[in-house]
């Protein structure tokens, strides 16, 4: 367990190093192009922000951030407070989206196992397909029509809307995985035994079958918690919330190499944290060693 924990954590500096190495190793232009101001400023920026040519160069963006200096090739750039605020927005969207989609997934799986009504069954079966068949940014757009987008002031209402738009595709996916697992559990002997003992259907589902199905959800769906990150990129764009996804897109568009390196590393760290959290939940749910 401890080894696994350390191994997972080690991914973060490795990603930081690899991305920096990759970005810094972008092709160097030939001599006659060296005069072009664009290229010159790009190179200067890489040397300044990324410590091009230094062994520990990949630490430089972090050192700059720690000193409170801004990163980026604008005169102003983004400093650690900006990055923290942006990350805060994205995390709020992601966590709310995760809660909404998990809530939906449990509701969905429960309904689908319980219902005997043919119309409900048809709807439940069709719904995920309908959601999959809609490009993820549609949901955000549809919500933006009445709500408008963030301009200034409190971001929270728009973060909630973004979370809702983000949650839908993830909810469809989690719901399907959970339902598949739950249906499988419902056919297993221990469920039949519990029922035979006179427990109500709901009690059987929530007390016995659902925790076991949750383990399957953890296995199948945790890697795809990234769906939420992906979704928040799109929703941030539509709702004009300048969160981490926005910063990342901006950095890529403006070729702000240092921001790309920092952003990628932060995302990698998030993924590692999510997978560690999932392991913790698994240990808690699964009594088997």
């Amino acid at each position: 367990m401890r080894v696994r924990f350390l191994r997972d954590l080690a991914i973060i500096p490795i990603v930081a190093f690899l991305v920096q190495a990759l970005v810094v190793r972008l092709p160097v232009p030939v001599s006659d192009d060296a005069k072009r101001p664009q290229v010159v400023s790009l190179q200067a920026q890489m040397e300044r922000d990324l410590g091009k040519g230094h062994a520990l160069g990949f630490l430089r963006p972090w050192a700059k951030l720690a000193r409170g200096e801004p990163l980026g090739n604008d005169q102003q750039g983004f400093d650690i407070r900006d990055l923290a605020a942006a990350l805060g927005s994205s995390l709020r969207i992601g966590i709310l989206g995760l809660a909404l989609s998990l809530g939906w997934a449990y509701l969905y799986a429960w309904f689908r196992v319980r219902t005997r009504n043919p119309l409900d069954r048809r709807t439940l079966e069709l719904l995920p397909d309908l959601i999959y068949a809609t490009p993820p940014f549609f949901f955000a757009l549809v919500l933006a029509i009445p709500l408008g987008t963030h301009l200034a002031g409190s971001r929270l209402p728009f973060e909630a809307a973004a979370a809702l738009a983000t949650a839908l595709p993830a909810a469809a996916f989690f719901g399907q995985v959970l339902h598949g697992a739950l249906a499988h559990e419902m056919g297993r002997p221990y469920v039949l035994t519990a029922r035979a003992k006179g427990l109500s259907d709901d009690r059987v589902i929530w007390r016995h079958a659902m925790p076991n199905a949750t383990l399957v959800l953890l296995d199948g769906a945790v890697p795809k918690v990234t769906l939420l990150l992906t979704g928040s990129f799109i929703a941030e764009r539509v709702f004009n919330i300048h969160g981490f996804g926005y910063l990342y897109v901006y950095a890529a568009e403006q070729r702000q190499a240092a921001l790309v390196v920092v952003g990628t590393t932060v995302f990698a760290a998030l993924l590692v944290l999510v997978s560690l959290a999932a392991q913790a939940v698994r240990t808690w749910l699964d009594p088997r060693p």
Partner: peptide, 10 residues
Amino acid sequence: IPPPRTPWFT
């Protein structure tokens, strides 16, 4: 338990 008749979900 008898199956519910109403399509609550829909």
